[in-house]
Amino acid sequence: MAILKNAITPELIPSYDGSNQTTHPSVLYFPDGFQGYEYWMAMTPYPFNDGGYEDPSVLVSRDGRSWQEPVGVTNPLVPRPAVGHNCDVELCYEPKLKELRLYYVEADDIRRSWVKLLRSRDGSHWEGPQVVLEDPGQMYSILSPAIQQRKDGSWQMWYVDSGNTGFENQNNKVRSRISLDGLLWGEETTCNDLAQPGHQIWHISVWRDPATDVLHAFYPAYPDGTNCDYCSLFYARKDPGQDWETYSDAVLDPGPKGAWDDFCIYRASFLLDEPGDKLKLWYGGKKKSDSSWNMGLVETSYTDLRRQLRTKIVT
């Protein structure tokens, strides 16, 4: 039984196609605001499982609940490619340059994939895209890039490698790369300690606490022998100098039959105030009867979450 309670109703997240069916959130919070808004979100529409609409989009909010396009922006920031599809956005902030960075994946669905980057100083005018990573031989080897700035100022990217099989692969690996500037990335390493026994990790989200250097991750994972339609959401934590600490229990399962998220719990984005004991978690969810997608918001106590997870740690 999962630890968190599902959002009873989904959030209203406007999408450029008019469906307001969205997924794969990536949320940043600016306490003093950025261009007048505390919350910035990158996401993609995904109406009724149609990957042709998974184009990078950006929204802003003052309260984390009511979202709109920034002034001067007409979503999507990038149109669909002539071949294949876009997906898997990740929004970052580069403090030295005072710029937003929106990374996303493009796959040709034949044999190649890329991680591309858009950059903006004001959130309204975006430059790019530029290619920062490419796999010329596999379609789905760099899924859901999760990017954080490290203590020394360099950057780290985590992502899921599902090779050419994608959503039904049975040997997914979480891999990582380091970059000095977030543009040129080094060789990949495999995060053997970040795994969910009996499951395949799918789309990952990571946040580094700048005060403690602790890494936190939330990720959907599907049981071995199934596919990504059967995901629940899990949590992991990495203290400095230690391996990733993972847990046997999911933090969020699909909702009850007939609920808006009764089939699949997808990629989540989260804001964690550990001293304040507050966790905000936006997550994508799919309804089984019509394959509609929406986004939910859960707010909870981080201490309570950790207490319940500690009782069933994965060794």
Rank of each mutant, 00 (worst) to 15 (best):
P25I: 15
M43D: 00
V78S: 07
V58S: 03
W40E: 04
Q68P: 00
Y46P: 00
V105Q: 09
S19W: 00
P47Q: 12
T22K: 00
G84Q: 03
A7I: 11
E94R: 07
V105P: 00
P81Q: 13
G18S: 08
P81E: 13
S61M: 03
P25E: 14
S26W: 06
V71R: 09
D50E: 10
E94G: 04
V58A: 02
G52L: 09
D88E: 08
T22G: 00
P56Y: 03
D55I: 03
P95W: 10
Y104I: 04
V105T: 06
L91N: 01
F48I: 13
K5G: 12
C92Q: 05
S61F: 00
Y37L: 06
H24Y: 09
S15R: 05
V83C: 01
K5S: 14
F48M: 11
M43E: 02
V27C: 09
G84I: 01
E38W: 02
N20K: 04
E54L: 02
S57F: 02
K98P: 07
K98E: 15
T44I: 15
Y46M: 12
G64P: 03
D50H: 09
V58N: 01
G72E: 02
K96Y: 08
P81G: 10
T74V: 13
N86C: 08
S19F: 06
P45Q: 06
P10G: 04
E69K: 08
Y104V: 04
L97G: 10
P81A: 12
Y16V: 06
C87Y: 04
Y16C: 11
Y93K: 05
V105N: 09
Q68S: 15
G72I: 03
S26A: 09
A7S: 15
G18W: 05
T22D: 11
C87V: 02
P14N: 05
Y93H: 08
G51T: 09
Q21E: 15
E38Y: 08
K98S: 15
L28K: 12
I3V: 11
L77A: 04
